[in-house]
Design a protein around this nucleic acid. Structure first.
Lengths: 243, 243
DNA sequence: CGCGTCCTTGAGCTTGGTCAAGGTCTGTGG
DNA sequence: CCACAGACCTTGACCAAGCTCAAGGACGCG
């Protein structure tokens, strides 16, 4: 099966066969982790760089009042760079949403690749800039009202999954509970529930059985003001379909 | 005068004299830009990497309804990496808050440094991870109530300015208008005004004449749950003072 | 069968938004 | 030196989006 980390990075640089092989080799140490499990937690010693090859995970921070804020979702192919400098402690927790295959990366090997393979370096820098861009999207999303905020989340995830070939027809898997969506969007799960109800009326998307279907992507994107440019996915489908 | 870009990057890697010199040389092309001016705007062709050597700037995106959301503040020493891959268009605007000195960086030179100078590479990667971490802080901050949200913003900026030596006694410059603070925190300027009034009662900080003073940093940090670890600033003062 | 997880809904409340008006301060040109 | 414009700050009255608390329902799994 194809390595989704490599597949994702193709969007960030023009990789050659040798680059792909090097990246696949870099991620050969795979761990299987079950759903809803912390991989590491806030305050733990900083672990190695990780890459999620299959499954969904999330980063979260716990607020003073005990609320969990998910800062970003990690989808198949996404990396999680902990800070290698300053042998410190993690400032967030990493938790699986579904069962995951996670590759652990040896720092020295990574360092060598960064030094010797300009394309790989470019791709990895691109990926960390994309992560920042996605986070900017979340900050911006915080200003939208609940309906559009949730719709935007769905559009973003759809585009990111499309980039690694995980869209199935007009829909894709949606493993997030209403609590999860609340923790991502800074809404309460009660309000997520009510918002889903409103959105169900408008038929902008259909949720059922941990799967979401989008009958009219353009309509949904227009509704929430989703413009996929910030994902920097080398303007294929997603970019060309909208304006 | 010292190069604040270099000064900041010292937090991310153990730079040698030659690394410092290379970084200083990299940022030799300096442009002066006046306050409240767009350096580039959403949709413009992607410009070169920029480094703000003096002054404050911000990234912002404009929502459908015309509201401006500032996604992140750029303080002296901070870099702004546009995506060099995918000759696309900027997905946000970059605007000065105060007058700024901005260095423009030649891509080829940057590439050479990344390939040849492991410490510089590590420092730059650190800086982009820090940017992401700050953005995660903003996402998290979005869940706090207005008073703590603003207090947290002040703590964060204080810590970042301290990292480049820009704290003056118990305070520092505060060029943000109430509109700006609203656009950063996703509050209306009216509500920022009222929140300032509340906070004035509690004497957690004192704003006057574009300068903010924090009489008791530990009290302010405790109030808003600020823990500076996420800034990855090599745990000096800030980190050791709190817990 | 029973328990845990997740979803659903109602009633009442609170935080922060909207709209509108007026005040202050500063820089500029007459 | 004064008048004026523009940017910024302040406050009031009212409103609404989203939260809290509480209860009950559906569903799957051991």
């Amino acid at each position: 099966m194809t390595n989704l980390f490599v597949r994702k990075l193709e969007h960030g640089a023009d990789l050659k066969q040798a680059d792909r092989a090097a990246l696949a080799h870099l991620t050969r140490n795979v761990l299987d982790i079950s759903a809803r499990e912390d991989i590491f937690a806030e305050g733990d010693p900083v672990p190695r760089m990780l890459v999620v090859l299959e499954g969904w995970a999330c980063r979260y921070r716990t607020l003073d009042n005990g609320q969990r804020q998910i800062t970003d979702l990690i989808l198949p192919g996404d990396a999680c760079h902990p800070h290698t400098a300053n042998l410190g402690h993690a400032d967030y927790s990493l938790c699986t949403v579904t069962a995951c295959s996670v590759a652990e990366i040896a720092p020295a090997e990574l360092e060598t690749l960064l030094a010797r393979r300009p394309r790989v370096r470019r791709a990895l820098i691109w990926s960390s800039l994309q992560t920042a861009s996605i986070l900017r999207g979340s900050v911006t999303n915080g200003r939208r009202q609940a309906e559009r905020r949730i719709a935007h989340l769905i559009c973003e995830i759809r585009a990111r999954l499309e980039a690694v070939g995980l869209i199935e027809g007009d829909g894709f898997p949606w493993p997030l509970t209403q609590d999860d969506v609340g923790d991502v969007t800074a809404l309460t799960s009660v309000h997520v529930n009510r918002t889903y109800r409103e959105l169900r009326m408008s038929k902008l998307f259909v949720l059922s059985g941990r799967f979401v279907r989008i009958p009219d992507l353009e309509r949904l994107s227009a509704y929430c003001g989703f413009r996929p440019d910030y994902l920097h996915l080398a303007g294929q489908l997603a970019a060309s379909m909208l304006r």
